[in-house]
Structures are given as C-alpha cells and as structure tokens.
C-alpha cells in the first residue's frame, strides 16, 4: 500500500479509533499535517488520552505527558533568530500560522517571530487535540510569558494540576492576585513563594485543593480558619501555640471538613507553657484526638518548631 492512504475518507468511528491508537508524539505530529486532520482530531478530543501540559515559561518549553508519565513529548518555543540552517527544518501549520520546526528525539523545536504568540499558539493547539490539565514548573514565574499565559488559561477555565506562583515582583500585583484568587477552584495544588510587604495581604476568594506557602508570615489565623483545602503546608509561619489550639478546637467541632493534613512550621510553636487542648506542647506529640461526632481522628506529630496534624476517617 504505497499510494497515499485516504484516512479522512474513512468512517468517522474508524478515524476516531485510529487517533485513539496514536501516542502523544504521533498525535501532535499528525495534527500539524493539515487543517482538516487537525479538525478531525479536535472533533474526537473527548475520546483522546488525558495529558498533563507542563509549562516551563522560563525555558520556553512545553512538556506534554500522559497521566502515568509513560508517554512524553516536548515542544520548545524559540525566536526565529536561533533557527539553524539544518536540512531537517520543516514547515508546519499551527493555529493558522506557518511555522518552522525541527523534530528532535523526544520532542520538537518551533521557531517564532514572537515567542509569547508561539507559546500561546502551541497551548491553544494542544488544548484542541488533548484533554489537558495544566501545570507550571517551579521557576516559571520569573518569565515574562508567565502572567499572560496563566491569565489566558484561567480565562479558558482550564484545570491546573499544579500552579507555582511568586507574588513579589509581579506586575500589577493586586490585579494579578485577584485573577488567581478568583480561579483557585480550578487548581489542585498551589504553591506560593513570597515574602510580602505589609501593604499587600492577599485575600483568598476561592481555594485550591492543596496549598503550600513558603514564607507564610502573612498567612494569618483568620485566613487559616477560612481555608477549605485538604492539605495545608505553611512554612516560615508566625502562628503560635494558641493559634493551633483554635484550629484544633474548630476541627473537633466539625470545622475544616476537607482537611487531611496540616503542616505548620513556625518559630512560635514552642514549649513555652501555652497550652493546646489543655495540654503542654510536648504532651501532644503522637497524641490521637477524635472530633466531636467520632467520625474522624487526627494524629499530632511534633518536631522542632513544627507541628503536623494528619486526619483519617474513623469508618
């Protein structure tokens, strides 16, 4: 069968089955073949594999991987000026743009006049061919691409598996935080790394499923009491024994219904005589406490200036 194979003339179900058999790399490469092929792949997107799209705005690279991490493809976004005169450069069509590209062993390089446009175009393209969950890498926030990219993804109401942000140094901090805070319901795991000036205290309008805050001195007891996350990790906090006492009492009476883990690291968690649930701090170590209706138990672990509460259901 050496003559071209009319894949688009096959019954739709058959096309769908063929697309389902392709791995991430094959599907991406096929989607660049023509607008018609791309449209067909897009039509069957809901039957496609689910992928995690990891955005590295700093390295200007997008990594697409299967949920089981066994299938991986990387797309690099480079300025036109860095194009090599290699014979392996080919022209492909992405989001109505004709772009030069070069395939590598487990990925490809694409060359753009405008890297932000390239970054967003590739993301748009991927969103149309896969079921995507987004993720950002740790140092992503340093890039100029970060804010416009994340804003666009929030506007599209896309889910994030992981989002790493740093607020200091970001443009229009208030506006930016509002955008993030309004959309945290879409985020599975949020990591915030920030030392903030007192003039700016972020207010959470929604919550992610899990949160980790490095330099969390701005995260007050009041904020913690309103937190609905299942996993809360606060590092460099200023919370004290009495604050943890309030947290435990609230939990015992049915507060923090989603909580599975609370990890609090603070220099103010000390054995200074301030009691928690009527006990000195060191008496609390390895203590198992139960909530009021007996449906959950929490185990307390202590370390030097940290305290961990892990919750299990009694049933």
């Amino acid at each position: 069968m050496s003559s071209p194979f009319p894949i688009l003339r096959l019954p739709r179900l058959v096309q769908c089955e063929i697309f389902k058999l392709l791995n991430i790399e094959e599907k991406i490469k096929l989607s660049f073949c023509s607008k018609k092929i791309f449209t067909q792949i897009h039509n069957y997107r809901l039957y496609s594999q689910k992928v995690i799209v990891d955005l590295d705005c700093f390295k200007q690279e997008i990594e697409i991987q299967s949920e089981n991490n066994q299938d991986l493809f990387k797309v690099g976004i480079h300025p036109d000026s860095r194009i090599s005169h290699s014979s392996t450069i080919q022209q492909i069509s992405i989001a109505s743009c004709t772009v030069r590209a070069e395939y590598l062993q487990i990925g490809m390089k694409t060359f753009w006049n405008n890297c932000l446009e390239g970054f967003l175009s590739i993301i748009h393209h991927l969103l149309k061919i896969f079921q995507c969950k987004m993720s950002t890498s740790l140092i992503c926030y340093r890039s100029d691409l970060f804010q416009p990219t994340i804003s666009m993804l929030f506007d599209l109401q896309l889910e994030f598996k992981g989002l790493y942000i740093r607020l200091e140094g970001s443009r229009d901090k208030n506006l930016w935080w509002n955008k993030i805070s309004n959309n945290l319901g879409l985020v599975e795991y949020l990591s915030i790394s920030s030392s903030l000036d007192r003039a700016f205290i972020p207010v959470f309008i929604s919550w992610p499923q899990k949160i980790r805050i490095l330099d969390s001195d701005w995260f007050t007891l009041e904020t913690l009491l309103s937190c609905t996350c299942s996993k809360i990790m606060l590092e460099e906090s200023l919370l004290e024994n009495k604050d943890f006492d309030v947290v435990l009492r609230k939990w015992k009476t049915g507060g923090f219904p989603n909580l599975k883990l609370l990890w609090l690291d603070s220099p103010n968690i000390t054995d200074n005589g301030e009691q928690i649930l009527g006990m000195n701090l060191n008496e609390l170590d390895r203590k198992v406490i139960q909530n009021a209706d007996g449906s959950k138990t929490a185990t307390i672990d202590l370390g030097k200036h940290w305290i961990e509460m892990s919750v299990t259901s009694s049933e």
């Binding site: 096959l10 392709l22 490469k29």
Partner: peptide, 22 residues
Amino acid sequence: CERIARMLRGKNTQEMIKVITL
C-alpha cells in the same frame, strides 16, 4: 485501525503528509 496507525508510527509531519494526503 492498528494497521493504519502503524503507517504513521515513527514518522515526522512531512512523512505523515506523504502517507495520508491524497
């Protein structure tokens, strides 16, 4: 379907175009 998918395996975009475009 597997047989058709196999025609596309290991190919880059330009090679795929040759395989499928009439």
